[in-house]
């Protein structure tokens, strides 16, 4: 359902205070060092535009390190969960990324608890040269989307919040996706990818890759994790889930020391396969939402899209 009352200043304020009453509010905040981070904003102010943050929304939905359980004084204790929260100023591409994570973690209890606790407010963004978003890529998650004039309800929860704020009539038109951003997206097929497994571009990119893992850390749809067990002096034992990264030397290692992906070239290829073609029930779903974070974060300017374009050119060579 779409709502169309002009979003006057007072309505935006109303929305913020209504969300802030029951929820911890988060928004992209531009720091003095030029880095945009998702931070709690207390009572505001409401951001005027959506902005990509260095670490995407996954930091709230799939925290870098979370305790899965704790064993203390003879009892198992489940992890403590964060309460209701709202994120204001989310880009459209990131709402797609959240939809993707929702599919991946559909059967994950702690993810689903956080999912139930969240409320996401999308806003228009200002695309830059790194942006390659694609409206047709996948559906959106989220609750409402607002620009200067209109509000769209994206979920029943969003509809209820807008009603409560007195915004009742339908908006016209589709969501304001940036246009012309997909021109540089190389439409590489799994067959083209597979046929080019020995293409020179892999060795070339691998010679530059520092294996720092920044691309995957900042990616809104990268979700690999590891499980770690730890003990404390008082006898407490805890199990944590922590982000893993396909560029790290032990990511592809299994018992006995066998490595599924020895060397940087194999790890780069794995990242492209996972990102562009997906695994398991999501095989065939490109999960690169085109936010450009990886391009910006890479210290040696490796760009999966450029590699894909080269692979298409080099196929069969």
């Amino acid at each position: 359902m779409i709502f169309g009352d002009p979003l006057e200043h007072t309505l935006r304020e109303k929305l913020l205070s209504s969300l802030g009453q029951a929820r911890n509010l988060w928004a992209p905040c531009l720091g003095k060092d030029g880095i945009c981070r998702l931070q709690t904003i207390g009572a505001g102010p409401f951001p005027a535009l959506a902005q990509p943050t260095m670490i995407p929304l996954k930091k709230l939905l799939l925290p870098y390190r979370e305790t899965v359980w704790r064993y203390q004084s003879g009892r198992f204790r489940a992890a403590e969960m964060t309460g209701p929260f709202a994120v204001v100023g989310v880009t459209l591409c990131e709402l797609q990324a959240v939809w993707y994570l929702d599919q991946v973690f559909a059967a994950d209890e702690s993810y689903q608890t956080r999912r139930a606790n969240r409320f996401l407010v999308g806003m228009p963004c200002e695309p830059d040269s790194n942006c390659r978003c694609d409206q047709a890529l996948m559906p959106l998650a989220g609750d409402i989307f607002i620009d200067q004039e209109q509000a769209w309800a994206l979920s029943t929860a969003g509809e209820a919040v807008l009603h409560a704020c007195g915004c009742t009539s339908q908006a016209e038109g589709p969501l304001p996706w940036p246009v012309g951003m997909t021109a540089q997206r190389p439409a590489i097929t799994p067959e083209q990818y597979a046929a080019a497994s020995d293409a020179p571009v892999w060795a070339e990119a691998a010679s530059h890759c520092l294996s720092c893992g920044a691309c995957s850390a900042v990616c809104p749809t990268c979700y690999c994790f590891d499980m770690l067990d730890d003990a404390a002096l008082d006898g407490t034992v805890s199990r944590s889930r922590i982000w893993d990264n396909c560029f790290f030397a032990e990511h592809g290692k299994v018992a006995g020391g066998y490595d599924f992906r020895p060397g940087r070239a194999a790890r780069l290829r794995f990242r492209m396969e996972h990102k562009f073609f997906g695994f398991g029930s999501l095989r065939g779903q490109n999960s690169c939402v085109g936010c450009g974070r990886c391009r910006k974060a890479c210290p040696v300017d490796i760009d999966l899209d450029q590699i894909a374009a080269r692979l298409k050119g080099e196929e069969g060579s």
């Binding site: 670490i55 920044a214 590891d226 770690l228 067990d229 944590s240 982000w243 790290f248 030397a249 032990e250």
Partner: peptide, 23 residues
């Protein structure tokens, strides 16, 4: 507890990105 602390083989860059430091 008869073990050794858990440990992730990864570079400082990963923790630096997680903390959203300026690179």
């Amino acid at each position: 507890h008869g073990g050794w602390p858990s440990h992730q083989v990864m570079p400082v860059c990963m923790e630096c990105r997680i903390n959203e430091n300026r690179c």
